[in-house]
């Protein structure tokens, strides 16, 4: 059994993740000594102190957002790769994030606010993004059985994403400047725009969804044998289809709603987790994707702050720089990918 090995990797990842989490809070435009950070986090510093405000109102929510994104998108990607039996499936690649963007753009550009802090607003953005994701997933599902070939599905997804971007572009043309600027910033992908009021909704939604899908691992493992074998081993295929789409849409949609379409995390992390854990078992891969994703996203966020002086690189540029070569490597290594998947 590899159980021992897996536990060691889990522990190592967890240690690295905690380290990156602290480092992510430590780094920023204003220099705050590490001892002060610890005293703020443990509640020993007066919340009205400048250091407290910077950490509690800016850095901590951003780091928590990084954790949520790092946990959600890779799991969504893993679900899509298992469900569509396609190694290049992922929320951004197949246009699911684009679908969420479209619905959010429609809401945002028509109402002119994404940073509205009312709970109603938060909920309406989540719901529209989840609906947008689900819409695209259903479209992909309806063509997927005709697109058995990995590359065809990939091209389909890219074309779909482009078409949606075009529609979003038309929407932009007709929208006012203020809303447009907000929307453009949103498409760069950012962890910094999420407020505590939004996190209060986002945290339970993501945690619940991930918890539910962990308990669905047995059925996801059945799907590795293909739908027919899965059915003959007792899987209700119709129900599981809707269920997986529902979960993927919530994970992708709610994250995309607040952070914008974040590239390559969803597709690359499941492959990294498979390599690290050398397993196809979802009982291992789902927690594996969560920990790997959190570590990588915190790292990307740290890198994005390297310019210093408060300047921040767009998160999407960093995730793409790291993720794209990796996806190319996976494609390169498994040129006969259809045999593997």
């Amino acid at each position: 059994m590899n159980n021992k090995k897996h536990i060691i990797i889990f522990l190592l990842l967890a240690i690295v993740a905690v380290f990156f989490f602290l480092l992510d809070i430590f780094i920023g435009a204003v220099n705050i000594p590490f001892s002060e950070i610890l005293s703020v986090l443990s509640g020993r510093t007066d919340p009205d102190e400048p250091a407290s405000i910077i950490i509690l109102q800016s850095r901590l929510p951003k780091a928590i957002t990084a954790i949520l994104v790092g946990a959600s998108l890779p799991v969504a990607g893993l679900l899509m790769q298992t469900f569509f039996r396609n190694p290049v499936a992922g929320p951004d690649i197949l246009g699911v994030s684009a679908g969420a963007s479209l619905f959010v753009a429609a809401v945002m550009l028509s109402t002119g606010s994404i940073l509205g802090i009312s709970i109603f607003n938060t909920a309406s953005i989540i719901i529209s993004a989840v609906l947008g994701s689900a819409f695209i997933l259903f479209v992909i599902l309806s063509v997927a059985h005709k697109l058995k070939d990995t590359i065809t599905l990939l091209i389909f997804g890219i074309m779909f994403g482009m078409a949606i971007s075009a529609i979003v572009g038309i929407l932009q043309y007709y929208s006012e400047k203020g809303a447009l600027k907000l929307f453009m910033l949103w498409t760069f992908g950012s962890l910094g725009g999420v407020t505590w009021q939004q996190l209060i909704i986002l945290i339970p939604v993501i945690c619940m969804t991930i918890l539910i899908i962990i308990f669905y691992s047995k059925k996801l493992n059945l799907l590795l044998l293909g739908e027919k074998y899965a059915q003959s081993l007792g899987l209700n295929i119709t129900r599981s289809r809707y269920f997986i789409i529902f979960i993927t849409a919530i994970l992708t949609g709610s994250i995309t709603a607040f952070c914008g379409p974040i590239a390559f995390i969803g597709i690359a992390v499941p492959h990294i987790a498979r390599m690290l854990f050398k397993s196809n078992d979802h009982f291992i891969l789902i927690p594996g994707c969560i920990l790997t994703g959190i570590t990588i996203l915190l790292m990307c966020d740290i890198i994005s702050q390297t310019p210093g002086n408060g300047g921040v690189l767009p998160l999407n540029s960093i995730t793409a720089c790291m993720g794209a070569p990796f996806v190319i490597y996976v494609l390169w290594k498994n040129q006969k990918m259809n045999r593997y998947f």
């Binding site: 590795l224 044998l225 074998y229 007792g234 196809n280 998947f341």
Partner: peptide, 23 residues
């Protein structure tokens, strides 16, 4: 099923037999 079905080709024999205990 005929051929290799749609089984994930990266699965090991052990993994397949373990999944087959699902019922």
């Amino acid at each position: 099923l005929a051929g290799r079905g749609e089984v994930l080709q990266a699965l090991t024999v052990q993994e397949i037999l373990q999944i087959a205990r699902s019922p």
